[in-house]
Protein backbone atom coordinates (compact mmCIF):
# COMPACT_ATOMS: atom_id res chain seq x y z
CA UNK A 1 0.00 0.00 0.00
CA UNK A 2 3.04 2.27 0.31
CA UNK A 3 4.02 1.80 -3.34
CA UNK A 4 3.66 5.00 -5.34
CA UNK A 5 3.18 3.00 -8.54
CA UNK A 6 0.40 0.94 -6.99
CA UNK A 7 -1.36 4.10 -5.81
CA UNK A 8 -0.96 5.69 -9.25
CA UNK A 9 -2.43 2.63 -10.98
CA UNK A 10 -5.26 2.29 -8.44
CA UNK A 11 -6.18 5.98 -8.75
CA UNK A 12 -6.12 5.81 -12.56
CA UNK A 13 -8.19 2.62 -12.52
CA UNK A 14 -10.98 3.87 -10.25
CA UNK A 15 -11.28 7.28 -11.92
CA UNK A 16 -11.32 5.65 -15.38
CA UNK A 17 -14.02 3.18 -14.35
CA UNK A 18 -16.31 5.89 -12.94
CA UNK A 19 -15.77 8.30 -15.83
CA UNK A 20 -16.32 5.63 -18.48
CA UNK A 21 -19.58 4.53 -16.84
CA UNK A 22 -20.74 8.14 -16.52
CA UNK A 23 -20.00 9.16 -20.06
CA UNK A 24 -20.83 6.05 -22.12
CA UNK A 25 -23.78 3.68 -22.06
CA UNK A 26 -22.64 0.93 -24.41
CA UNK A 27 -20.32 -1.71 -22.90
CA UNK A 28 -17.84 -1.66 -25.78
CA UNK A 29 -17.66 2.12 -25.72
CA UNK A 30 -17.20 2.07 -21.96
CA UNK A 31 -14.31 -0.40 -22.26
CA UNK A 32 -12.70 1.61 -25.05
CA UNK A 33 -13.06 4.97 -23.34
CA UNK A 34 -12.05 3.57 -19.93
CA UNK A 35 -8.98 1.90 -21.44
CA UNK A 36 -7.93 5.10 -23.20
CA UNK A 37 -8.43 7.11 -20.03
CA UNK A 38 -6.48 4.61 -17.92
CA UNK A 39 -3.64 4.50 -20.44
CA UNK A 40 -3.64 8.29 -20.64
CA UNK A 41 -3.33 8.58 -16.89
CA UNK A 42 -0.43 6.12 -16.68
CA UNK A 43 1.48 7.39 -19.71
CA UNK A 44 0.84 11.03 -18.73
CA UNK A 45 2.13 10.44 -15.21
CA UNK A 46 5.29 8.70 -16.48
CA UNK A 47 5.97 11.41 -19.09
CA UNK A 48 5.40 14.21 -16.57
CA UNK A 49 7.60 12.38 -14.08
CA UNK A 50 10.46 12.25 -16.58
CA UNK A 51 9.94 15.87 -17.59
CA UNK A 52 10.25 16.87 -13.93
CA UNK A 53 13.32 14.70 -13.46
CA UNK A 54 15.92 17.53 -13.85
CA UNK A 55 14.13 19.74 -11.29
CA UNK A 56 15.14 21.33 -9.02
CA UNK A 57 18.05 22.41 -11.20
Amino acid sequence: MQSHTFLLVAFAFFVSVVFSLLSKDDLREQLRFGGMLFGGFIVGAIVLGWLMYPFPL
Binding site: Q2, H4, L7, F11, F14, V15, V18, L22
Partner: peptide, 24 residues
Protein backbone atom coordinates in the same frame (compact mmCIF):
# COMPACT_ATOMS: atom_id res chain seq x y z
CA UNK B 1 3.79 9.68 5.92
CA UNK B 2 5.14 9.44 2.37
CA UNK B 3 1.64 8.68 1.13
CA UNK B 4 -0.13 11.54 2.93
CA UNK B 5 -0.82 13.55 -0.23
CA UNK B 6 -1.88 10.43 -2.14
CA UNK B 7 -4.36 9.71 0.65
CA UNK B 8 -5.77 13.22 0.45
CA UNK B 9 -6.11 12.90 -3.33
CA UNK B 10 -7.98 9.60 -2.97
CA UNK B 11 -10.35 10.98 -0.31
CA UNK B 12 -11.10 14.21 -2.16
CA UNK B 13 -11.53 12.60 -5.57
CA UNK B 14 -13.79 9.88 -4.11
CA UNK B 15 -16.10 12.62 -2.82
CA UNK B 16 -16.02 14.59 -6.06
CA UNK B 17 -16.71 11.47 -8.14
CA UNK B 18 -19.70 10.79 -5.90
CA UNK B 19 -21.02 14.26 -6.72
CA UNK B 20 -20.73 13.48 -10.44
CA UNK B 21 -22.57 10.20 -9.84
CA UNK B 22 -25.37 12.11 -8.04
CA UNK B 23 -25.68 14.50 -11.00
CA UNK B 24 -25.78 11.54 -13.39
Amino acid sequence: AATYEYGNAFLIVAGLLNLLVVLD
